[in-house]
Write a protein that binds this DNA or RNA. Structure first.
Length: 361
DNA sequence: GCGATCAGCT
DNA sequence: CACAGCTGATCGC
């Protein structure tokens, strides 16, 4: 099995041969599968391409002219692939969650990854009985430990999202961060009722941050047309029923995370004068970690410049170090292949010794 | 002229 | 750092 690496150097043509360092798995039928490996054009001999979720660093290389082979993904990811990338629908094969599909003699199942909408863990059971689990990107949680496919049979190889595989990465449960965001919003509005609330987001992911504020305040969510088109494709009524298409109609706006800078926000605020006179923005990311704030949300200090306030909040859609450890100790795989932070040999070694420590019996 | 990709950046 | 992109330049049709 080939798995994509997030190492930027892999994108460089001069280092494309790094592809060879990845494991190429052949089933009994001699058919290699790949996961999130679209940026190499077609992979020689590959007959099934899997896509774990719809983020650029995973689907990169997929575009209108794709004809290298069938793409298997969840129904939501399939809609986005067709809608946003104009991939020929005849190449796209949606697979419902928790439903086993036989693909060239291999039984494949998509499991909820607790990452962005449509994201899947991909479980492969080969004809010789061996199981592989590819996590794509995921945030490990207790519910995963109850899934029949993960409790009843051993996993021989785990392809693991190791984004935060370092003890320094700590962050609270998502729910705690959502409560904090709602609390800060309420306090700000009490002090300054004419505050425009902004949540930063990439294309997909972090929806619960603005949905929580929307519910708590009873206000709609404003997003521009291109984002609304994507959000409306989710089949998530709670979300789509609360969108609005005019910025004046709600004090809650979703903006690209790249626009969460004081200068940009103040400009944005000016387009809503005199309706709003201050702006409060949340930047949700797992990188908002620190020894002190890791478990103490109330210690988070916003960046304030005049009437613009920006809170970095540790809302993560990847596993923390401790969540990763718990998942691996639960699964007890024979072998672990990290898929993130693999560009550096020292980091790779560190992760492997970490895994050995975790699985020491 | 346009979509796709790349280097550089955050 | 790099979450998951974005911007502007360049390439290929």
């Amino acid at each position: 099995m080939i798995t994509r690496s997030r190492n930027a150097s892999l994108q460089s043509p001069t280092k494309a041969s790094n592809l060879e360092t990845h494991k190429l798995f052949k089933s009994r039928l001699g058919t290699p599968f790949t996961v999130d490996a679209f940026r190499y054009g077609g992979v020689e001999g590959c007959s099934a391409y899997f896509l774990s979720h719809f983020h650029y660093d995973h689907y990169g290389g997929l575009s209108k002219g794709w004809s290298h082979g069938p793409i298997y993904c969840t129904p939501l990811t399939a809609r986005l692939v067709k809608m946003c990338l104009s991939v020929n629908p005849s190449f796209v094969y949606p697979m419902e969650f928790d439903t086993e599909h036989a693909i060239e003699g291999v039984k494949v199942t998509m499991l909820e990854a607790n990452h962005c909408p449509g994201a899947a863990l991909i479980h492969f059971r080969f004809q010789d009985g061996r199981c592989f689990l590819h996590t794509g990107d995921f945030r490990a949680c207790k519910l995963m430990q109850t899934h029949p496919l993960l409790t009843n049979q051993r996993v021989s190889t785990l392809y693991l999202d190791t984004t935060y595989c370092n003890p320094k990465y700590k962050f609270p449960p998502k729910e705690d961060v959502l409560s904090f965001v709602v609390k800060v919003t309420r306090t700000s509005l009490k002090r300054q009722p004419k505050t425009l609330i902004v949540v930063g987001a990439y294309s997909i992911g972090k929806e619960c941050v603005y949905l929580s504020i929307s519910k708590a305040l009873g206000v709609k969510i404003y997003a521009n047309a291109s984002r609304r088109r994507i959000l409306q494709s989710y089949d998530w009524p709670e979300l789509s029923d609360n969108l609005c298409s005019n910025g004046q109609d709600s004090p809650l706006h979703v903006l690209p995370i790249s626009s969460l800078r004081h200068e940009t926000l103040k400009q944005y605020l000016e387009t809503y004068t005199p309706q709003y006179t201050a702006i409060l923005a949340f930047r949700p990311t797992g990188w908002t970690y620190s020894e002190t704030t890791g478990n103490h949300l109330d210690l988070i200090k916003p960046a304030i410049k005049g009437n613009s306030t920006i809170y970095g909040v540790p809302y993560s859609e990847h596993s923390s170090f401790l969540e990763l450890r718990e998942f691996v100790q639960f699964l007890k795989p024979d072998k672990i292949i990290p898929t993130v932070n693999v560009g550096n040999a020292a980091t790779r070694d560190k992760m492997q010794s970490c895994f050995r420590q975790w699985l020491k019996s």
